[in-house]
Amino acid sequence: MDAKTILGLNLRRLRVERGYSQERLALDAGIDRAYVGRIERGSENVTIARLEALAAILQVPVAALFAEPADHKPPALRPGRKPKAR
């Protein structure tokens, strides 16, 4: 498996485990939501600065984004939007 694919699988797994949507992660990282999707699909070359930002938001070391995944299909988030906070 190539590095971009490993990065994408790990990013998605960590994002889902922490309850982030692509949109929320992108907003917190200051990037476009579509860019997050391309990273997760393994079709984007990511800079080290972006990797550091994403890892900081997910509260993991950058190296965790490159660990060989045990499962190649991370779970999906629950469908639908979260209720608005009041």
Rank of each mutant, 00 (worst) to 15 (best):
L9E: 05
R13N: 04
A64W: 08
R81L: 15
E23A: 07
E44L: 14
V60Q: 12
T5R: 09
V16H: 11
V60A: 11
R13L: 08
A34V: 15
V62D: 06
G42H: 03
Y20M: 02
T5Y: 08
L11K: 00
L54C: 06
R18H: 14
V36K: 01
L11R: 00
V60Y: 15
E40R: 00
D2R: 02
L51A: 09
K82I: 02
H72R: 12
E40H: 03
L54H: 03
M1E: 14
P61T: 14
P75M: 11
L54S: 06
G30L: 06
A29S: 13
P79K: 13
A64F: 10
P75G: 10
T5K: 05
R38E: 13
L65D: 09
Q22V: 01
S21T: 15
L65T: 12
I6D: 02
K82C: 05
R18M: 06
Q59W: 02
A67V: 15
L51R: 04
N10H: 10
P74K: 00
A49L: 08
R12A: 03
L54P: 04
G19E: 10
R33G: 08
G37A: 12
G8N: 05
L14C: 01
L77C: 12
K4S: 13
V62Q: 03
G42W: 11
L14V: 01
G37S: 09
P74G: 04
A64I: 05
Y20V: 02
V62K: 04
A29Q: 01
L11A: 00
R38K: 15
R50F: 04
V60H: 10
Y35N: 13
Q22D: 01
E44P: 04
V46W: 07
G80F: 11
R24K: 15
E40L: 04
R81V: 12
A34M: 10
G8T: 09
G37M: 01
N10M: 10
A34H: 09
G8Y: 03
G8E: 01
E44Y: 07
R41C: 06
Q22G: 15
D2C: 07
L7R: 00
N10E: 12
H72N: 09
A26T: 03
A70F: 06
A70R: 07
A34L: 09
P79H: 06
A56Y: 05
T5H: 11
R81S: 15
L27D: 05
A29D: 10
R50L: 08
K4N: 10
H72G: 07
N45G: 01
E17S: 12
R24I: 10
A67W: 01
A85D: 12
S21G: 07
H72K: 13
G8R: 00
R12S: 06
G19A: 11
L27A: 11
P83V: 14
V60F: 14
G42I: 03
I39M: 04
Q59A: 13
L51H: 02
D71A: 13
L65M: 08
G37F: 07
G37K: 03
L51K: 01
L77H: 09
P75Q: 13
